[in-house]
């Protein structure tokens, strides 16, 4: 042990002895963690997601063609396959908007919002959709 280190050690012991005579002092508090939700690591798309996206696209096309009930059926299949794919909820809300059932559209729009929260572009679309639902509700 070097002399300098011995000095540090003695100083520490002294501090400890003094600390025993004093009211316990809380240690310096670390700053409160600021992160809210731990970002999830990007993972390669699973086969289920890939298959689900095929159905999502199919559902979207059916919606475009005006085959709303068919689109709902396909999008529900897509949800069965991969329930975390928020686009399915978005298009389901779109389908119910087309059927002018605001209450159903609203439920799916909220689910879309929950699942697409990390995607700014999609969140804009979800917000616009919410406005259209609100319009329908009036």
């Amino acid at each position: 042990m070097t002399t300098k280190r011995k000095e540090i050690a003695i100083a520490c012991l002294l501090i400890m002895a003094l600390a025993g005579c004093m009211k316990a002092m809380p240690p310096e508090k670390p700053a409160l963690p600021t992160e809210t939700v731990e970002p999830e690591k990007p993972t390669p798309p699973s086969p289920r997601l890939v298959a689900s996206l095929q159905l999502t696209e199919q559902g979207r096309r059916l919606l475009e063609q005006g085959k709303t009930d068919n689109a709902i059926r396909v999008l529900e299949q897509a949800i069965s396959l991969y329930p975390d794919n928020g686009q399915n909820y978005y298009y389901l809300a779109e389908a119910w908007l087309k059927k002018e059932v605001a209450s159903e559209a609203k439920k799916f729009n909220q689910l879309a919002e929950m699942h697409l929260k990390d995607n700014t572009e999609w969140m804009n679309r979800v917000a616009q959709q919410a406005n259209r639902i609100a319009e329908l509700e009036k």
Partner: peptide, 28 residues
């Protein structure tokens, strides 16, 4: 929670010093 554990706070300083000392002596 916004509060730090009060139970281990009073042991906190001593424990930290002890750990520091241990490190110092172990280094030799």
């Amino acid at each position: 929670p916004t509060e730090y554990c009060p139970l281990h706070q009073k042991y906190g300083l001593g424990k930290q010093i002890f750990k520091g000392l241990k490190k110092v002596f172990n280094d030799d």
